[in-house]
């Protein structure tokens, strides 16, 4: 098991390397040199003129003006060795600090929607499979299809409108006021967060939940008639214990490996829902940084999001190996 985890960890390194190159190329794609543009902006807006020395310093730090491979090496080297994500010209702050401020809430919201998705999808999927073609099955299947068909940004908009018109509360943001958002963490702040966070979590999780219900139902239906279930039934196990110990356990397999792909899906959904709901997470910041050619911030966020999803893939693989002895024995 340990060697398996180590192997998976080692295997992450080349993947992360490829992703970092992809991200670097992506942020280099827009026409125009971001640093020249930044120098120009600073001059126009604030009348601040960079001295030769400043520009030399920037060259040393970002490799500005160097060929692309050198720039890439400096960029990734700074991130890996020093945790230095570069400078956000748009926010006028260290990119690393901006990202560090955003990430905890981003992770919290993504995890929250993840948990929501599982808690809802698992029992409903099981119920739909065990009571196939029952009224409950039809109802949930139908709701699931509707959940899949509503774009989550639209769902977010509709909820925002409903909140304002019917409930007279605003679902935007994660906190009641800007003061609370700035305040240091306290019990009151967490409570305030929870009061607001459930809406985006539900919105982000809806599509994933619908998909997961269908996966669970299909998998369990496949397993319910396997010979090993018959063997267990012939032992005289009660239907409930039988279901939980045998077909459900087997059906969990694709379900768990599905979560490797669920997290990227949720993070992607989070990005767009956050923009609509104006959440203080990475989504809106990423969009703005990309629109403003704020390459180091944008690149850093893209890199971290990809890293997060790689970690989730790793976790799901480990969970799979722990669940399924066949994987542990490398069959």
């Amino acid at each position: 098991m340990l060697t398996y985890i180590l192997r998976r960890l080692l295997y992450m390194i080349p993947v992360m390397f490829i992703i970092s190159i992809l991200v670097f190329l992506t942020i280099q794609l827009p026409p125009g040199d971001p640093i020249t543009k930044m120098i120009e902006n600073q001059r126009l807006q604030q009348g601040r003129v960079f001295s030769e020395k400043d520009i030399e310093m920037m060259q040393a730090r970002f490799g500005y003006g160097d060929p692309l491979p050198v720039q890439y090496t400096k960029w990734i080297g700074n991130i890996v060795l020093r945790g230095d994500f570069g400078y956000s010209f748009y926010k006028r702050e260290e990119a690393g600090k901006v990202i560090a401020d955003l990430m905890p809430l981003t992770i919290a919201i993504s995890l929250g929607s993840f948990i929501f998705t599982w808690i809802v999808a698992l029992p409903i999927g099981v119920l739909s499979a065990v009571r196939q073609y029952s009224i409950a099955d039809y109802v949930f299947t139908f709701i699931g299809f509707i959940g899949l068909a509503i774009p989550n940004f639209l769902l977010a908009l509709i909820l925002l409108v409903l909140g304002l018109t019917t409930f007279h509360t605003s679902f935007t943001g994660l906190f009641s006021s800007a003061e609370i958002q700035q305040a240091p963490w306290s019990l009151a702040k967490v409570w305030d967060l929870l009061k607001h966070a459930w809406v985006p979590m539900v919105v982000i999780g809806t599509g994933g939940t619908a998909g997961l219900i269908r996966i669970m139902r299909a998998n369990l239906l496949d397993e319910l008639h396997k010979p090993y279930v018959e063997t267990a039934r012939a032992k005289g196990l009660s239907e409930m214990r039988l279901l939980v110990k045998y077909p459900l356990r087997h059906a969990m397999n694709p379900f768990v490996s599905g979560f490797a792909y669920l997290l990227p899906y949720l993070v992607a959904g989070e990005a767009i829902v956050a923009i609509v709901m104006n959440l203080p997470t990475e989504g809106p910041t990423l969009l703005n940084s990309l629109l403003n050619l704020d390459v180091y911030l944008g690149g850093g966020i893209l890199l971290l999001i990809s890293f997060m999803t790689l970690i989730s893939t790793l976790l799901s693989d480990i969970l799979l190996a722990w669940l399924d002895p066949r994987i542990r024995y490398g069959n």
Binding site: Y228, A234, G236, R249, H250, P325
Partner: peptide, 23 residues
């Protein structure tokens, strides 16, 4: 019937490959 199954009447299946759960 569950008290009969596995205790008074037991069964052996055709596919030894798939009749045991691999978990």
């Amino acid at each position: 019937i569950r008290d009969i199954r596995g205790k008074e009447i037991a069964m052996i299946f055709q596919e030894p490959m798939t009749s045991f759960s691999s978990m």
